[in-house]
Design a protein around this nucleic acid. Structure first.
Length: 492
RNA sequence: GGGGGCGUAGCUCAGGGGUAGAGCACCGGAUUUUUAAUCCGAUGGUCGGAGGUUCGAUCCCUCCCGCCCUCACCA
């Protein structure tokens, strides 16, 4: 079969049209879910229902045929009998596996006790022109699954369930923040100055304003402006964009939750996060608190372990004091970490990442980070070198990042200025003066949180790769296939 | 960007310097209780792309494209 469209299916489509059967009707009878038909099924035999979905696996017995019908959540057997379907029966071979149909019928059982809808009326709702993937293995080819996610979703029910779960996770997050009095807001994705994180941005341009713009790397600085404005508790779930490499844990666009709550500090945010995980275990995981990820088990029951950054640093580096610059530099060289021309605190943090992070199975809050790598966090009242910041690690993945937000405009301006001394592709060459201006109008003390939704979904759905929890992960264009297709189209 | 692996029918996969293979799907036939139905028959391929070696390449070599894993950057 070299044609783009399966010729046999095209022929069936033509036959349907000849018989005045619309293969793509505008309106069909509204169905109920198959799941609702399965509830209390035994007591409802003989009841008439209308269901709809994709046909699978037709099993033909001459005057009788069986198939399964699949909708979003469930599937059920459909029994087609010649004598009950005078209208449909002559067309039965024109309607085949993979077609979308609406079936009216009676709930009943087969001789072997299989729950079945005995059809009394069958309407083709959409004719399929492509062959479906194999019924048993589904679509396995990873590349094809990503490029044709629409096929992956209907051919692989577990993929569909995974994305349904992702949707429920996001609903669960909204429920939790809403219940805590947080207001969901939206802030600019197109930003004239990028900030709020350390990452290379995507650049774009607005034509009529003739203005360079960046796709946001974080919503942080806009959300905190809203605290100045008095909204007090805000959160945003949205896409952020980072112009960096791809991996099983990184996609150039990913979904982030950020929240900011006035009159709270990072300890309160830890509780907020623990509460969130508790809520998700209750709702999304239906009371479960254990998840399996990459072959290991994780217990998400709060409270989580809490470990001080500098203590972990010493523990995994032979008692080394994080602030002992010459000793840490020596350790960095031992670990073959790039040191030349880089700020020492980044080098020291690289030592932390190289020696500690992979060993954090978690869930664990790592807290009290060195202030120098936390440009938006408040200093610890007892040690000016330390910031009130924590990160949540589970399965070696950084899932969340939070701090007691810096609201001192003069301190903030100074930290921006210090950042400008080391400008690279990952930091703006411009200070966000308006953000400092906002702080000068007064921002209440606040606890802020950033949480990677995709990684959370990986953990809760047990998927190893971020591409398995993003419906359409970024892929290169397959120029070979594209050329092949356009050539084939020209020949038509 | 570095290293490793992969790309064969619509799908899942085997094969391998000499006419390209299976199962499923599809097509024709049989069949009123199947559950990956079964049975009989038929169809279906630029073996990712372009070069090279060879009498002959899907197989060997080179380059290119794409995907996966991994390292680096990062969340």
């Amino acid at each position: 079969m070299t044609e783009r469209i399966a010729e046999d299916r095209r022929a069936k489509l033509d036959k349907l049209r000849e018989k005045n059967r619309n293969p793509y009707p505008i309106r069909v009878t509204k169905p109920v879910s198959i799941g609702s038909c399965l509830e209390n099924f035994e007591d409802r035999q003989g009841e008439e229902v209308v269901v709809a979905g994709r046909l699978t696996q037709v099993r033909d017995f001459g005057k009788l045929r069986f198939s399964h019908l699949m909708d979003r959540d469930e599937q059920i057997q459909i029994g087609f009998e010649r004598d009950r379907l005078p209208e449909f029966w002559p067309d039965r071979k024109l309607v085949e596996a993979n077609d979308i149909v609406v079936v009216r019928g009676e709930l009943g059982l087969t001789k072997k006790g299989e729950k079945t809808i005995w059809a009394t009326e069958v309407t083709l709702a959409s004719k399929t022109l492509r062959h479906a993937p194999e019924k048993w293995h589904g679509l396995q080819d990873v590349e094809a699954r990503f490029r044709m996610r629409y096929v992956d979703l209907f051919a692989n029910p577990e993929v569909r369930q995974g994305f349904i779960l992702r949707s429920k996770i996001i609903s669960g997050i909204r429920e939790h923040f809403d219940s805590q009095g947080y207001l969901e807001v939206e802030t600019p994705i197109l930003q004239p100055i990028f900030g709020g994180a350390t990452a290379r941005p995507f650049k774009t341009h607005h034509n009529s304003l003739d203005m360079p713009l960046f796709l946001r790397i974080a919503p942080e600085l806009y959300l905190k402006r809203l605290l100045v404005g008095g909204l007090e508790r805000v959160y945003e779930i949205g896409r952020v964009f980072r112009n960096e490499g791809l991996s099983t844990r990184h996609n150039p666009e990913f979904t982030m939750l950020e929240s900011y709550g006035a009159y709270a500090d990072y300890r309160d945010v830890m509780e907020l996060v623990e509460g969130l995980f508790g809520h998700l275990c209750q709702t999304v995981l239906k009371g479960q608190s254990k998840v399996e990820f990459r072959g290991a088990d994780y217990d998400l029951t709060p409270p989580f372990d809490k470990r001080r950054y500098t203590e972990l640093f010493a523990e995994h580096n032979g008692g080394l004091d994080f602030f002992d610059e010459p000793a840490v530099l020596a350790r960095a060289k031992e670990l073959h970490i790039e040191t030349a021309g880089r700020p020492w605190e980044k080098i020291a943090n690289d030592v932390f990442e190289a020696t500690v992070e992979d060993n954090l199975s978690g869930p664990v809050f790592v807290y009290d980070y060195p202030l120098a790598i936390c440009p938006f966090a408040k200093a610890h009242p007892e040690d000016a070198r330390i910031a009130e910041r924590f990160e949540l690690f589970i399965a070696g993945m950084e899932l969340a990042n939070a701090f007691s937000e810096l609201n001192d405009p003069i301190d903030q301006e100074g930290r921006f200025e210090r950042q400008l001394e080391h400008v690279d592709e990952e930091s703006s060459s411009e200070m966000d003066e308006d953000y400092v201006n906002a702080l000068e109008f007064g921002m209440p003390p606040a606890g802020g949180l950033g949480l990677g939704i995709d990684r959370l979904c990986m953990l809760l759905t047990g998927n190893d790769s971020i591409r398995d929890v993003i419906l359409f992960p970024l892929l290169k264009r397959d120029s070979g296939r594209v050329e092949k297709q356009t050539e084939a189209e020209k020949e038509d």
